[in-house]
Design a protein around this nucleic acid. Structure first.
Lengths: 230, 230
DNA sequence: GCTATTATAATACACCATGTTGATTAAGTC
DNA sequence: GACTTAATCAACATGGTGTATTATAATAGC
C-alpha cells in the first residue's frame, strides 16, 4: 500500500490533485463511462499525455483514488485491532462514518447511481474479517449465515452512508454511529419504535395520511446508546 | 412499461434474446466499460448494425434490461399492496428474494464488482414507499431517520441477495426471507445468537482460532420465524 | 399460398477518442 | 547552479463508433 514512502515531486502532487478535482467535478454531472480523457485534461487544463503518465484510463484513475481511500480507512482501523486486544463495534462504526465524512464528495459520487460497485465490494472485503470475530463470539451459526449477516451489515451501513452524504453529513458522525449501532443490536424495525413492538408475522396497516408519530422527537438526536470507550 | 402490448415480431424477440445472452456471458468475464458493440454482436453472431436498431450503446442496453426486471418486480409486488389493505413485511421480503432467484444471473452481474450502482439506486426507489407505512406505524421518528432506516434495510437486503446469488441461491427463497425478517426485527447482532446477548457498548474479544459455535446447527435451516399468511 | 411488410445482413464511410512516441521546455530537487 | 525529472507539444496509426444505403430473408395478414 504505502510503497511510496518518499514524498512525491510537487509537480506530481499538483497534477494528480488537479486531475482528481476535475474528475470529481465531472462525476457530479455525468457517468464515468461518458467521461473522456480529453475532456478531463481539458478541464484540468493540462496536456492529455500527462494523464497517461499516471493512469491507464478513467476507470483506472477511479480505482487508484479508491486505493488511497481504503489505505486511509485501514489507518483508521489499525489502532482498533491491536492483536490480542478486542474488536469494538461502536468505535469501528464511528471510524467508518468519520471516514465517510472525510471523503464526503468521493463517497457521494461512488455511492450514487453513477457510482462504482467495486467500491462496495472492496468495502465488503475490508470489513469482513473485522466482524467475523464479533460474530463468532456470540453465534453458533456457520460460515453461510455469517456471509449473509455481514453482507447485510456492510451493505446496510453503506446505504446509511449514502443517504448521509447525500444530506451533506448534516448529523455528526457519532450520531450516525449510534443509529447504526442501534439498528445492528435491536433490528431495523424495532430501533426507535414506540415500545409496543409487534411480533413476527404482524401485518402493518398502511398508515393514513395524518399518520401518528414524529412529535416528541429529540432535537437532532436519534436514539443514543451508551458508547464503549476506546 | 408495457407500452408494447402487441407481441413483438419473432425475429425481434430472437435478436434481443441473443444479445442479452451474449451480454450476460461477456459480463461474467469483463467490465461493462470494456465490452464493445463489435464483440457483443460478434459473439451473438449478428450484424453490428442490428444492435443500434434497439440500443444506443452497451450501457443503454443494460438499463433497458433493468427496466424489464423492475417491471416484473412491480408485478410481484402489486398483489401485496392493494389499496386499503396492509403492508406485509415477510411476504414482501419473500417476493424480493423470489425475484432475485428468477433473475439470478443478471442479479449476480449487477451486484458484482463490475455491476451497476444504478440498479441499487432504482431498487431503493421502488422499495421506499413500501416500507414507509410500516415505519410510520411503529415509529415516532421523522423523515430523516426514515431515510437512514430504509437505506439501511434496502442496501442490507441487496447485500444478502448478492451473497445469495453468488452461492447460486443454494438456500430456498423462503429461508432467506426468514433470515432477513429476523435481521430486521431482532438486529444483525442478536439474530441467531446464543441468547446471552451482550448490551450496547460491549467489547467483543477477538475469537481464538478454534472458536466456539457451529456445532448444534440445524441442517440447511437458519432461524425460522413464523410467517404471516398472505 | 401469395403479397405486403418489416427485420436483418452486407457494405461503406467519416469521425473522433485513444494510446503511444520523440523531442522540447519548464519546474523541482539537492 | 547543475542535475534530474515532469509536463508540454505535435504527430501518428489504430479501432470502435454511429449512420446510411441497398439487398435479402423472414414474418404476418388475408
Amino acid at each position: 500500500m504505502a510503497e511510496e514512502t518518499k514524498k512525491e515531486d510537487r509537480r506530481v502532487r499538483r497534477t494528480k490533485k488537479l486531475l482528481t478535482q476535475a474528475l470529481t467535478e465531472l462525476l457530479q454531472k455525468k457517468q464515468v463511462k461518458d467521461i473522456t480523457v480529453t475532456e478531463l485534461t481539458d478541464l484540468a487544463d493540462m496536456n492529455r499525455g500527462t494523464f497517461y503518465l499516471y493512469y491507464r484510463d478513467i476507470f483506472d484513475m477511479l480505482e487508484k483514488i479508491e486505493d488511497e481511500m481504503f489505505s486511509s480507512l485501514d489507518g483508521i482501523f489499525k489502532p482498533l485491532e491491536k492483536e490480542g486486544d478486542a474488536l469494538q463495534i461502536r468505535p469501528t462504526l464511528l471510524a467508518l462514518f468519520q471516514f465517510a465524512a472525510e471523503h464526503q464528495e468521493m463517497c457521494r459520487v461512488l455511492l450514487s447511481p453513477n457510482g462504482d460497485m467495486n467500491f462496495l465490494h472492496r468495502l465488503n472485503e475490508v470489513m469482513r474479517e473485522k466482524w467475523r470475530s464479533a460474530w463468532q463470539t456470540i453465534h453458533d451459526a456457520g460460515d453461510d449465515e455469517f456471509d449473509y449477516y455481514y453482507s447485510f451489515v456492510v451493505f446496510g451501513c453503506a446505504g446509511m452512508i449514502r443517504a448521509w452524504v447525500n444530506r451533506e453529513c448534516k448529523e455528526p458522525a457519532a450520531e450516525m454511529a449510534d443509529l447504526a449501532d442501534t439498528l445492528l443490536r435491536q433490528g431495523g424495525l424495532r430501533a426507535g419504535g414506540k415500545g409496543d413492538f409487534p411480533p413476527a408475522g404482524t401485518v402493518f396497516p398502511l398508515a393514513p395520511a395524518g399518520a401518528p408519530g414524529r412529535k416528541n422527537r429529540k432535537e437532532g438526536k436519534f436514539h443514543p446508546v451508551d458508547c464503549a470507550p476506546s
